[in-house]
Amino acid sequence: MAQVAILPDRSRFPGTGERGRARELAARLPRLVLEARRVATSLAHGIHGRRRAGPGESFWQFRPFTSGESASRIDWRRSARDSKLYVREREWEAAQTIELWIDRSVSMAFASSLARAPKVERAVVLGLALADTLVAAGERVGCLGLLAPRASRHISEQIAEALAADVAGADRDLPPAAPLRQRSEPLLIGDFLVPLQDIEETISFIASNGARGHVLLVVDPVEETFPFSGQTELIDPESGARLHLGDAAGWGEDYRRRFQAHREGLRAILTRYGFTLTVHHTDRPASEAALRVLTLLASRRNGGA
């Protein structure tokens, strides 16, 4: 039977916002950041043959000059090599921004004995790692409502600092319901254990300008399988609600059905708004989910937005 534990509250703040805990911040952040880097490195090695531009290079591709275009856009050096005129397209001008949001609510501070890491830690690690990787890939990564998109090499440190400083946002179950620009690509990491209509409302706001994004669902295996039996009292750490079960094993059947329905509902909502859904179990290595998210991001790029 699985054991579960509620982590101390501050674990939801990778580096607490308290000034007095600067040392702890310093001690904790590098670990998460390093972990994120490690994941990112393995990602870089994990996806071969991905076309990516080197840093500082603004060139994306040449395309034949079409009449009517401004002549200043002709790349003469290229055009000089043959008889056609080429236009240098500068991808960076059209670069999309990744808006990262990491759920750090109370429900995320949860780890069962079956999991490798608490959900919040896994979410932060995944977020930072993806940010690092994406920045390295030339993307601009920002934090939804916290950090403007940027392509800083120290993006993971910056996000971590922002997260640590954001005390108010730590209680949010859902990202801020603000419309994103079309070129923004939200990457929402969380457990989304909220009623479906709340999720739909938020997603609809975010996508109201046409932004499409990705949802990385972090799930503790216990939450899916509910391996409990016997006399049990369940406590919701967020609301404090309690449920007394005479026979947990019997109730678990119903629960699993409900949980699956919630998952399906979530998937339907996301599909409707053009979001992808990646489910990550905390008993699996973080790189699996990161790879999938990266693949989704890349395929969206390749597929042309």
């Binding site: 579960v4 429900s107 949860f110 457990d191 503790d220 939450e223 409990f228 406590i235």
Partner: peptide, 8 residues
């Protein structure tokens, strides 16, 4: 048992 998905 603390159980976050209880809300659902």
């Amino acid at each position: 048992i603390a159980f976050p998905p209880l809300r659902l």
